[in-house]
Computed example of a mutant assay.
Amino acid sequence: MADRHLIDVHILLVDGDRLLLTQRGGSDAFSGRWHLPSGKLDAAEPVTAAAAREAYEEVGVVIDPADLRVVHVTHVAGSGPEPRLGLFLHARRWHGEPTNREPDKCSGLRWVRLDEVDELDVIEYPAVGIRAYLDGDAVAFSEHGWVPVAV
């Protein structure tokens, strides 16, 4: 296992009773599965600025960082070569119509009714944050994929 932990931001764009999901492209184990617009923090970048940047880069919407609120934090193992701290942010407002701006990484976008999210093949890691949002566990913390360590 790597000696560092990545920090990821995941953006929940909710329009009424619908959530925007992206479908992973490529040929890895997650190809074809559903995810949220997301990405890693850059050096010296605040969390809300990273989330706004990733939303613009991936789906072309403009979000004022002040319109983002953290709805869940999870510490994840097994979703890639390095452990991750995932921060899930709900965008209260945004400007623009979502479009697929990274067709080399994303094979599609889809608005999904909130009551239908569980019927899709969502990658386990983002599913944790989506479920917390849907359950109303604002600013809750979870751990996912870790094997218990004997003390």
Rank of each mutant, 00 (worst) to 15 (best):
D17V: 04
V59M: 01
N100I: 03
L87D: 00
V139F: 04
W94M: 09
L109M: 10
R18N: 08
A50F: 01
L134A: 06
N100H: 07
L13G: 07
L13V: 10
G60D: 05
L12H: 12
C106S: 12
V151A: 13
V128Q: 05
V139C: 09
G136W: 03
L134F: 05
E143S: 11
P65Y: 00
R110W: 06
R18L: 03
L13D: 02
Q23C: 12
F30D: 13
H75K: 13
L87F: 02
T48F: 11
V70E: 10
F88W: 05
L114D: 01
Y56E: 08
L12N: 08
E82Y: 10
E54W: 15
F141A: 08
R18W: 04
E82T: 15
E119S: 14
S31K: 13
G145Y: 11
M1E: 12
T48V: 09
L20P: 09
V9H: 02
L36E: 06
A127W: 08
A132W: 01
L134H: 06
A43P: 02
L85C: 07
A127V: 02
A127S: 07
S27H: 15
L6V: 04
L19E: 07
E102S: 12
H72Y: 11
W111M: 09
V62G: 00
E116P: 04
A91S: 08
L114H: 02
G108F: 12
G96E: 01
D17F: 06
V62N: 03
V122I: 14
A140W: 00
L109W: 05
V151Y: 08
G60P: 00
P98R: 06
H72M: 00
G25Q: 05
P81L: 14
I63D: 00
P126C: 03
L36F: 11
V128R: 07
A77C: 13
R131Q: 10
P46H: 14
I11Q: 10
V112G: 09
L41D: 04
T74Q: 10
V76T: 12
D121W: 04
P148Q: 07
W94T: 10
G80T: 02
G86I: 11
E45N: 05
L120I: 13
R18C: 11
R101G: 01
D17T: 09
L85E: 05
P83S: 09
T22I: 15
G78I: 08
L114A: 00
R92Y: 09
Y125W: 11
R24S: 14
I7A: 07
R4Q: 09
H5M: 14
A49I: 12
E45A: 14
A44N: 11
Y56M: 06
L20S: 06
V117M: 01
V128C: 09
L85P: 00
V73E: 04
G26L: 13
G78P: 12
V139G: 00
V147N: 01
R113Y: 03
A49S: 14
G16S: 03
I11C: 06
A51C: 02
F30P: 02
L41N: 02
L20R: 04
E58D: 07
H144A: 02
D118A: 15
P46S: 13
H95C: 06
V70G: 03
A50W: 04
R131W: 04
W34F: 11
S38G: 12
A2Y: 14
D3K: 15
D137K: 08
I123S: 04
V70M: 08
D118Q: 10
P81C: 10
G26Q: 14
R110C: 07
A2M: 05
G86A: 15
K105S: 15
L41W: 01
A52F: 06
P65F: 04
